[in-house]
Design a protein around this nucleic acid. Structure first.
Lengths: 226, 226
DNA sequence: CGAATACTTCAGTTTGTATTTAACTATGAA
DNA sequence: TTCATAGTTAAATACAAACTGAAGTATTCG
């Protein structure tokens, strides 16, 4: 078992391959050429590395015409890379921006079934600021005003609470190193935004597209600039 | 941020250093010489690698006389290594042992504040088998007999349920790849066993020692052979 | 169809970094 | 004191594995 672990560790621990994994963490699927560009190397070389990652079962491919789309083969891989990203030494000073809107969204992805990425964090911040949810020592709770807010928004909280899965929990986002909403509430919010066509899921990827309607509504409800 | 990630990945991704991390995952603190032995290399070499891991803030040291004890510098490191260990390709066939006791414990460690390692898994299995807890699609629940059992055991469930933290949840163990008890119940069980002197915490490590009394009681209550 | 793009394969070269050899300091035991 | 053990440092060496160049296949597009 030890050698197996060493194999996996050395597989991830090559500069070019680590760059690949880092890029794929964004949730989208990338072509070999795209990965060669971001990893700053030749097509031949990236091809070799991608083969190794495939053999190690860390990635999966899908062929579309003359393109090959690579992405993580399963969520455990994403978890591992996120956990590793979490070990990056923290910057000393965090610049605290005093603005009344949240910074523009660079990308938008789902953390398996709830919203993560910059939008997930911004959304969570906004919910906290509006006191819709409350943070008491890293546990989220819905306030009494929040209960009204969710029902106005069209989400039935009682039903969510009945579900087996954990109702409401924070989930550390690697890119922002801040908590965003997970649990069934996170999933319900995501779902609602998709049915309302604020957001659309993309095929074969964890990435999410923001519609024109979504852009307006996100600004209105959450002061998020897309 | 990308280069930082690459640095971390390559730091872990050297065979000798990966072997070190794998060894330390057990929770105990090891001396440089011990690590050289398990990693199958020379003292000079292990010294070089340990220096790099210290510089990367992945490990911390404590000097005791002429010995230096190395261990993970924080829990995030353990999380990351566990997440990586989770990527190891699963063995095709799982040998299912049909015994009426659980296999001997090789080591015993806490997963931050609940019992993990072989003993944690064996304990959870035993609780499941005795129908003290029930597993319904990867969510644990306490049965009605279980409620009585816990109160007989000296654990007040009602109080635990009032706590903010998640009451009862499974936690995937890297070594056994099986769920064990986390949440407040896991912590309470661990605590109880410590106050009853079945188990003792060791200084400077996540490892746990089983006392003579504990050995008898674990067999009696849970059919666990230590 | 031919030309361009996307990707792969293979053989040869380079290079980064792990390891070895050797000499040194510090602590503990006899 | 003297010897043994624990660990470090520095320079020289070795080597695996990444990379390069050249040539190949497959697909799309005009």
């Amino acid at each position: 078992m030890e050698d197996q672990f060493i194999k996996t560790a050395t597989l991830i621990g090559d500069p070019t391959r680590a760059a690949i994994m880092w890029t794929l963490l964004d949730g989208r699927a990338f072509t070999a050429t795209e990965l060669a560009i971001v990893a700053n190397t030749s097509p031949q070389n990236i091809s070799m590395h991608l083969t190794k990652l495939l053999e190690g079962d860390l990635l999966s491919v899908e062929k579309q015409g003359r393109h090959k789309y690579y992405r993580f083969s399963n969520k455990e891989v994403a978890y591992a890379i996120e956990a590793m990203a979490n070990l990056i030494p923290k910057p000393e000073i965090r610049l605290k921006k005093e603005k009344d809107t949240y910074p523009p969204i660079k990308y938008c992805r789902t953390c398996y079934d709830h919203l993560a990425g910059k939008i997930g964090v911004a959304l969570t911040d906004s919910l906290l600021e509006q006191k819709i949810i409350l943070n008491t020592n890293d546990t989220f709770q819905i306030s009494s005003e929040g209960e009204k807010w969710f029902s106005d928004f069209g989400i039935n909280i009682e039903e969510a609470q009945k579900q087996k899965r954990i109702f409401l929990k924070p989930c550390l986002d690697w890119s922002e190193r801040r908590n965003h909403l997970a649990g069934s509430i996170g999933a319900l919010l995501l779902n609602k935004m998709i049915t309302e066509d604020w957001l659309r899921k993309t095929k074969n990827s964890r990435a999410i597209i923001i519609t024109g309607k979504g852009e307006k509504e996100l600004l209105k409800y959450f002061k998020i600039v897309v």
